[in-house]
Simulated assay, not measured.
Amino acid sequence: MSTEDGPRTAPAYPTNGLDDTVHQRHRLGILTIAAESERVEVAYLRGALELTAGNLSRHLTVLEEANLIQVEKGYHGRRPRTWIRITQEGRRALLAEITALQELLRRHGRTAPDAETG
């Protein structure tokens, strides 16, 4: 883009605001579920997101290493349990992701394309 005064910088495209760590669908699911409550049990996440224990563990490790969640181990009665909590940094990252997705929706409309036009 340019103007009579010289080149004009276009605003960054919304997809530039997507974070690959957060955007991956299972990790996005983990963060959104965790943001809805104080803490969430890992067994619940595994069922809700239809993940194997190993696959979920890997996603939790990525999020924990990025400081987006905290993992808490303990017991419920005599049974060992693992819970996660979203961190403040995780909340900020989730909000940034949602904001970028909302901007994409705004740019491209909220309705499906007309079936007749393709």
Rank of each mutant, 00 (worst) to 15 (best):
S2T: 08
S2Q: 15
T3R: 08
E4T: 13
D5A: 15
A12N: 11
Y13G: 05
N16K: 08
N16H: 13
G17A: 09
L18G: 06
D19K: 05
T21S: 09
H23L: 14
H23Y: 06
R25P: 14
R27H: 02
L28V: 02
G29K: 03
I30F: 13
L31K: 07
T32K: 06
A34I: 01
A35P: 01
S37P: 04
S37H: 12
S37E: 14
E38V: 04
Y44D: 15
R46D: 01
G47K: 07
G47E: 10
T52S: 15
A53C: 05
G54M: 01
N55T: 14
N55C: 04
L56Q: 04
L56M: 09
S57Q: 12
S57M: 04
R58A: 09
T61K: 11
V62T: 12
V62M: 15
L63I: 13
E65Q: 09
N67E: 15
N67I: 04
N67F: 14
I69L: 12
K73R: 14
G74Y: 11
G77W: 11
R78P: 02
T82L: 08
R85A: 03
R85F: 06
R85E: 10
I86Q: 10
I86V: 15
Q88W: 08
G90S: 04
R92Q: 13
A93Q: 00
L95E: 14
L95A: 15
L101H: 11
L101S: 03
R106Y: 11
R107K: 10
H108Y: 13
G109W: 06
R110L: 15
E116C: 07
E116D: 12
E116N: 08
G118W: 04
G118N: 04
